[in-house]
Amino acid sequence: MPSIESTDVKKLVIACDAGMGSSVMLASNVKKQLKGTSVIVEHTPVDHIPADADVVMCHAGLAERARKTRPDMVIVPFRLFMGDPAVTKVINAIKNGGTIDG
């Protein structure tokens, strides 16, 4: 599985199927939490993950599709749109340093 040092993360993408609902809400929360850092947060459909994304977070049910689209990227699956420990872990790594595993 790919991994990345948090200091190398420039763009974080939150992906869902259509990119119009749940990913929008989570992206807005994450953006708020990463305010003050230089990390760009975007939301996209899972089949359209941009090539320059460093870390992708998506619902566990879509992780396989995301891995198919971007096999070399760090894909972090989550289950809860609010307060998921996997999401918190990524945010804490970006803020405090550490490795993010896909």
Partner: peptide
């Protein structure tokens, strides 16, 4: 059916698939 749109706090945000856009 594929992924629930439940987001927490008693709220769900149903929407279509990418194919339904």
């Amino acid at each position: 059916h594929s992924v629930s749109t439940f987001v927490g706090e008693g709220v769900a945000i149903p929407h279509g698939t990418l194919a339904g856009k």
